[in-house]
């Protein structure tokens, strides 16, 4: 192939990549539905793109005891579809699906962490030996450090156990011993890039008690793009 052809092919290839990303995101922005989500931001820095605000949404942690789910078995990197309904102007979770629901506004996410509900401690004694789910979890749980007298209260103690660093296969979640309690989910809208040094301003406004929300646009495939950052309902301009 001649260098001239390689040159043209490269330029076309690169422009296709650039325009592909732009078209993909613009499609969502132009055809999607705008939803306001509640957030809790902090300010870090990206290697190539500078300052950004980390957006931790209320829908980033899904409590399965409060939100109905199509299926309660979840694994890391599972794709989920969270149906949303609008309440008081905010998008709030309605139901968790494993497949895209029909006729509902939903946002696509990926499970990046699972919180398990631990069983009441007194019940451990009756767990069949071959199951041994508690022993598998104990080394990384808070209850592993509880003294025997504290670990045997009169009323069963329900504690949340963070096991994000473990493979789900290691934990016996069948039966009644340990069940999925909460899901940590990423929607691809967890970063909001700001001009250099401005992230701290947003952070300080949050500490001043101002409400920080995000207006996102969700297309019919569940893809979301951030449209605006809102402080006390006002769009942040840079």
């Amino acid at each position: 192939m001649s260098p001239k052809k390689i040159f043209y092919l490269t330029v076309v290839f690169w422009l296709l990549i650039f325009s592909g990303i732009i078209v993909y995101k613009e499609y969502t922005l132009r055809t999607g539905t705008e939803v306001v989500l509640k957030t809790v931001p902090v300010d870090p820095r990206d290697l190539f793109r500078g300052d950004y605000v980390v957006l931790n949404y209320e829908i980033s942690t899904l409590d399965l005891s409060e939100i109905p789910a199509e299926d309660t078995q979840f694994w890391y990197n599972d794709r989920i579809y969270l149906a949303l309904e609008i309440k008081d102007g905010y998008g709030v979770p309605k139901k968790i699906y494993k497949n895209p629901p029909e006729d509902e506004l939903y946002i696509k996410g990926k499970v990046t962490g699972i919180l398990y509900e631990e069983i009441p401690l007194p019940e451990r004694e009756i767990i069949p030996e071959e199951v041994e789910p508690i022993e598998a979890v104990q080394p990384e749980t808070e209850t592993a450090e509880i003294a025997p007298s504290e670990a045997m209260p009169e009323e069963p103690v329900i504690e949340e156990t963070v096991v994000e660093e473990r493979l789900p296969e290691e934990i016996e979640i069948s039966g009644e011993e340990i069940t999925v309690d909460k899901l940590i989910v990423e929607y691809g809208i967890e970063s909001y890039f700001v001009p250099e040094g401005r992230g701290l301003e947003i952070e300080s406004e949050r500490w001043e008690g101002k409400k920080v929300d995000v207006a996102v646009v969700i297309d019919r495939f569940g893809n979301a793009v951030i449209r605006n950052l809102l402080i006390d309902g006002e769009k942040v301009e840079f």
Partner: peptide, 24 residues
């Protein structure tokens, strides 16, 4: 090319430290 890619990603607030962008 990489700088342009990250600029577009920045404009659309694609998640920070995204491995897919480096792969592209």
């Amino acid at each position: 090319f990489g700088a342009s890619l990250f600029l577009i990603a920045q404009i659309y607030n694609i998640n920070a430290n995204n491995s897919t962008l480096v792969l592209i």
